[in-house]
Design a protein around this nucleic acid. Sequence first.
DNA 1: AAACGGCAGATGTCTATACTGGCATGAACC
DNA 2: GGTTCATGCCAGTATAGACATCTGCCGTTT
Lengths: 241, 241
Amino acid sequence: MATTLGKDRPAARYEQVKLYITERIETGEWGVGHRLPSESELVEILGVSRMTVHRALRELTVDGVVTRAQGVGTFVAEPAQRVELLELRDIADDIVSNGHVHSTRIITLDSIRADSDLAMAFGQRPGARLFHSIIVHYEDGTPLQVEERFVSPHFAPDYLDQDFTLTHPHRHLSAIAHPEEIEHVVFAVTPSLDICTLLDLDEPEACLQLMRRTWVDGRVVMKGVFTYSGSRYSFVGRYRP
Amino acid sequence: MATTLGKDRPAARYEQVKLYITERIETGEWGVGHRLPSESELVEILGVSRMTVHRALRELTVDGVVTRAQGVGTFVAEPAQRVELLELRDIADDIVSNGHVHSTRIITLDSIRADSDLAMAFGQRPGARLFHSIIVHYEDGTPLQVEERFVSPHFAPDYLDQDFTLTHPHRHLSAIAHPEEIEHVVFAVTPSLDICTLLDLDEPEACLQLMRRTWVDGRVVMKGVFTYSGSRYSFVGRYRP
DNA sequence: AAACGGCAGATGTCTATACTGGCATGAACC
DNA sequence: GGTTCATGCCAGTATAGACATCTGCCGTTT
């Protein structure tokens, strides 16, 4: 009974057990493949019942943090190889990390009033003010993505004052707060003539489009529409069930 | 103690409890919003302890099958609209669970020899035998998806003998073995004339295409190309970072 | 040397019991 | 009529104890 998790009210005990374990994994104290103390040992170390330890470990298994084998033990799992297709990514990072040069061009940066569709997406009434930006991302000088964003002024009051040739909307918004919830919708579109022009497409060509909404404090603060140039981009995911 | 779940060995009791509940939801006996019996009532009905019932309900909550409110009760949740992009899904289940009628039409079912691209996808030499199928999935009579599959004969020797009007390739292959690894690639395409015909598209329209490869025992055993009809389908994901 | 059997230790499951905190309802009060 | 408070129902969590099942190891037997 060395540690004795606090018996007050910060969080459920099994959550504290999960924290105890994930902290040791994140600091590297327990590397990949390391064998965790057995359930009984954790019971003695942490001063909680075995059912509580078991629940923590079971949930960590579901989360892919550890793997377990009956009769053998519990081990630190490989860091998740699965690429979440819906992960929040920064296209600038993507381009650079693939060894290409990234640049942007700002098409629009203004303030608009929400029409009924936008208002519904944001859970506000039509006519509400929204900041609006259209930016093209280039990879080695050729356009790869057109991003159009609508941002709640309440969330990012300085949005229009940013110099998006130096930073990017993604970074600016991330610096304010991390979203607590994200919705992604992926579909195929035949782009409009405007988008075709921005993407240097001679003729309309099927493009991937990703629509993202992010929530902070229970409210939609950003809606983004990202159109990727033709067949030059695809989403890839791998996972082990 | 009316029902008394079997105390023999088919599955864990909490799994049986989950089954008891999901069956009633799937048959429609308990519709969306229906209030489930309380934990104590389920204890009496099923003859298991409350912890067992609680675990079953907790896992069903995580799965999005039910929603719970402390002090109020447990309710049948809205059928999950969200399609996990990386999840392995059966489109037949998708269509049926959204309240539509599913049917199929078999276009091709034969044995071919791999060209160099296919051989590379399967990690085999060109000329290797592969089973090949093209099937159209209909939702309420209108085509929603064209699936073209290439299957390793070594993995599924009976593939060509299946009656895919009764079952589906997905189910047949799932019954043989669960893949240990899956790769998904999503992109937008302008479908070929053949695909357009199969999808009843008057003119080429941007379509979502999903390419899937699955591994069993370290070898690629299936490559599937799924083309979804135009804007009638999209992938949606929600997550909390 | 190989095969078998038993044992210890690990996870998986289940039960009975208890306490906590959230919520709705209805009664009593203002 | 409106407000407040007590009560009961409900899910959330926690524990101790027990049994089940699987695995790896070791000592014995063949």
